[in-house]
Amino acid sequence: MTLLELKQIKKTYLQGKMEVPALRGVDLIVDKGEFITIFGPSGSGKTTLLNMIGCLDTPTDGEIYLNGNRISALSKKELALIRRNNIGFIFQSHNLIPVLTAYENVEFALLLIGRLSEGETRERVFKMLAKVGLKGKENRKPGELSGGENQRVAIARALIKEPKLILADEPTANLDSENALDVIKIMTMMNMELGNTFIFSTHDPQIREYARRYINLRDGLIFSDKKKEQ
């Protein structure tokens, strides 16, 4: 079942007076529950593509549909609402709020939606932190956790609101190999367990192996799009 559809997405940035194309007509269809990696050399347009899909940026040309709704021409406020309710982000650096505890950082994403009672919120956050292996560390602030643990908090924050789509831009780039593997395993587990769609970019071939679909981006175009053979 189609979750996301990109039609001839183009993005051009202006550098001074010069136009620099970052995406040059990307077509992509993503089904619900997919676990996709986007890879390619630096400057190939991975981050730009993720920003378009994540409603953080709007295309210069082309159309994007999420759940059948055209999102490529929405206002900033409407895009923020879509991000809030439908999309989870995991960043290269965890980007946690340093004055909040692990619990509060995860809770923050839920409070934004504001649909749950205090008790339900509490139960869901504790459960999610336990799932990512942080049971007992709920009250620690980012400064008191390791890099890997912080990234797990970031994963929990992205997943807590049960978004349809989770986007991760180089989520393991700042981690050592052991922590990187832990993080990708958690992502895989969540994908299997919760059925969310994951799209992540990576340079690491070892991490890439965990994906079930591989999209190779070169010079702002999809060079190859392969699915893992079962």
Partner: peptide
């Protein structure tokens, strides 16, 4: 700045 970007990604409007 990065934190503001993150909050924006989480869905906080301007």
């Amino acid at each position: 700045k990065r934190e503001i970007g993150m909050m924006s990604a989480l869905g906080l409007n301007s």
